[in-house]
């Protein structure tokens, strides 16, 4: 069905292009939202990416890879090229209640605080590292797929992800050392 839509869009069928947009708008929007950190930038990215798709759809060749891979590549490149670090739209740490962080309950507040803490840590990554983290741990893509999207060797994906995970681990330990221990880390402590 997607291939039909793509072929019709390539032939200039605007109805098919509209269907293509609605089919894939969430993929583009959510990736941009996670990479750029706010709705306005994600909305702009959605526009720019699909303008780019409309312009260059004729160059897409299904035999060379999946449409989603091609779309991910345009999206990630757009986000990386923005050169604006406006990622963090999270609560400052001092606004997070220590009580909620130290609580062992899974209350809404503590989960919220954990998520904000993780977002804060994600904000410490380079944009390229954040891209692999989002592609791997949100979209669940393989290293080979990520390598194709980012146009880098698989080894580069592997090292970026390795570095990113270790940075995240360190950041999460740093910001939580005085009180908060995210539940995932408590698992580690419990296992001791």
């Amino acid at each position: 069905m997607d291939l039909t839509l793509i072929r019709r869009s390539q032939a200039g069928d605007e109805v098919a292009f509209a269907a293509l947009f609605h089919e894939y708008k969430n993929l583009v929007y959510k990736t941009a939202y996670l990479m750029l950190g706010n709705a306005d930038d994600a909305e702009d990215a959605l526009q720019e990416v699909f303008i780019q798709v409309h312009r260059s759809l004729s160059t897409f060749q299904p035999s060379k890879g999946a449409f989603t891979t091609w779309l991910h590549r345009i999206t990630v490149n757009h986000c990386l090229n923005r050169r604006r670090k406006r990622y963090l739209s999270v609560l400052p740490l001092d606004e997070v209640s220590p009580l909620s962080l130290t609580s062992h309950s899974s209350s809404f507040e503590s989960r919220l605080a954990e998520e904000e803490t993780v977002q804060q840590a994600l904000g410490q990554l380079s944009e390229k590292q954040r891209a692999v983290v989002i592609l791997c741990y949100y979209w669940d893509l393989s290293y080979a797929e990520m390598a194709q999207i980012l146009d880098v060797p698989v080894g580069t994906v592997k090292s970026r992800l390795n570095l990113a995970l270790r940075t995240l681990r360190k950041e999460l330990e740093t910001v939580t050392k005085d009180a908060p221990i995210p539940s995932a880390f408590r698992l580690k402590e419990d296992a001791k």
């Binding site: 995970l165 995932a184 698992l187």
Partner: peptide
Amino acid sequence: ATQSCVSH
């Protein structure tokens, strides 16, 4: 644990 946290 970090992966789980981040993914979630």
